[in-house]
Nucleic acid binder design. Sequence first.
DNA 1: AGATTGACTGCAT
DNA 2: CATGCAGCCAATC
Length: 110
Amino acid sequence: MPPEPSDRTSLYERIWAVVRQVPVGQVSTYGRVARLAGAATPRIVGFAMAGLPRDSDVPWHRIINSRGEISVRTDGAPDRRQRRLLEKEGVRFDRRGRVDLDEFGWPPGL
DNA sequence: AGATTGACTGCAT
DNA sequence: CATGCAGCCAATC
């Protein structure tokens, strides 16, 4: 289902709009956001997160990869700040630093 | 205009 | 469960 040709909002804005809908204490994945926003591939969602302004109200930290892990950045390490923010919201990590998507994933039951 | 690069994913091994 | 690999497409150079 391709995006509307007449979409005036940019692809990034649609992605950010979806991310803003993720409730506190829950997480979503690049793949899920990509489908909801009509993005062609999950990679684009990652790109959109990287290009996010610092002062935006987009809860970028609630987006993790399909395995339930915090994705590593270009420098090869995951962002510690992201995990801290999620834990503060009540998201639990297992010993390997993974989140149970069946429990915390949004949208639920997908 | 062509090549390179990513905050990814699913399937195979 | 961990690793590897191909496919993916927008942005950058």
